[in-house]
Simulated scan of single mutants.
Amino acid sequence: MTIIWGGAGNPAANQAIADFVAGHIDGCERGFSDFTSLGVMEDDMLIAGVVFHNYAPEAGVIELSAAATSKRWLTRPVLKAMFGYPLDEIGCQMVVLRVSEHNSGMIAIARRFGFDSHRVPRLRGRDEAEIIFTLTDNDWRAHAVNQR
């Protein structure tokens, strides 16, 4: 697997990764604006993407949106890049994920990585809650993936 970066230095890849992620998330038809992305390639195919958006530098907070077509994408190098960019490179103190209450796979992943969760009824519409997951830089650095 290979990690590729979008961003201002690679705008075509940036948009392609963001389109991939938006295309795999229900309710994300509008896509993203003002973002940087990370892609995971396997055999020259994009199998996963992470979009870093809604950056609030004054608060040190950024939102992550991710999607994948393979369960093998969350390797240690990908995790270190995915959290290293916001928490180490741009100095965020917290990352945020917004997840449908129906997305049991992503909910399990977020809990496994130590995110705190807050369920907000109707945030995805009249009949669907959204779970806001937060992970501080301190909690990420204490996670087992960083202890080796």
Rank of each mutant, 00 (worst) to 15 (best):
G23N: 06
G49M: 09
T75W: 00
P77R: 04
D26E: 10
E89P: 00
I25E: 02
L46G: 01
N54Y: 01
E58S: 07
G114Y: 10
K80G: 00
S104Q: 15
D127I: 10
A108I: 13
R72Y: 04
H118Q: 15
S70Y: 00
A108Y: 14
G125M: 10
I3T: 08
T2E: 12
P121T: 13
V51P: 03
A110N: 14
T75I: 11
V40Q: 00
I132K: 01
R98M: 12
M94G: 02
N138E: 13
T134H: 00
H53W: 14
G125E: 08
I132M: 07
F20D: 02
V145Q: 00
G105V: 12
S33G: 04
V50F: 11
S117N: 13
S33Y: 05
G125H: 08
R122G: 02
N146V: 05
R148K: 10
F115D: 12
A144L: 08
G27I: 08
A13M: 09
V21N: 06
E130M: 15
E63F: 07
F113C: 12
Q93A: 09
T75N: 02
L64I: 12
W5K: 11
H53C: 09
E128C: 14
T2W: 00
R30L: 09
Y85D: 04
F115M: 15
L123D: 14
A68H: 11
H102F: 15
L38C: 10
G6P: 08
K80M: 11
F133S: 01
A56F: 07
L64N: 05
A66K: 04
A18S: 06
P121N: 13
V21H: 07
V50T: 14
P121E: 13
G23M: 07
L135K: 06
A81I: 05
A8G: 11
I3C: 04
G9S: 07
R111E: 15
V51M: 06
V21Y: 07
G27K: 08
C92K: 09
A22D: 08
S104C: 11
S65K: 05
P77D: 04
A129T: 09
S100I: 12
C28W: 13
G39K: 03
K80D: 01
H143Y: 05
V21S: 08
N54S: 09
E29Q: 12
A142N: 11
M45E: 10
S100R: 15
L87P: 08
V78E: 00
G105S: 14
A81V: 05
T136W: 09
R76F: 05
D137I: 07
V120P: 02
R111P: 06
E89D: 14
M1C: 06
A48G: 14
A81W: 04
F52T: 04
I3A: 03
A22N: 08
M41C: 06
H118P: 00
F133H: 05
V51W: 04
E130P: 01
V95E: 02
T36Q: 05
G39W: 03
V61C: 08
Y85H: 14
A68I: 02
F83S: 00
D34E: 12
R112C: 13
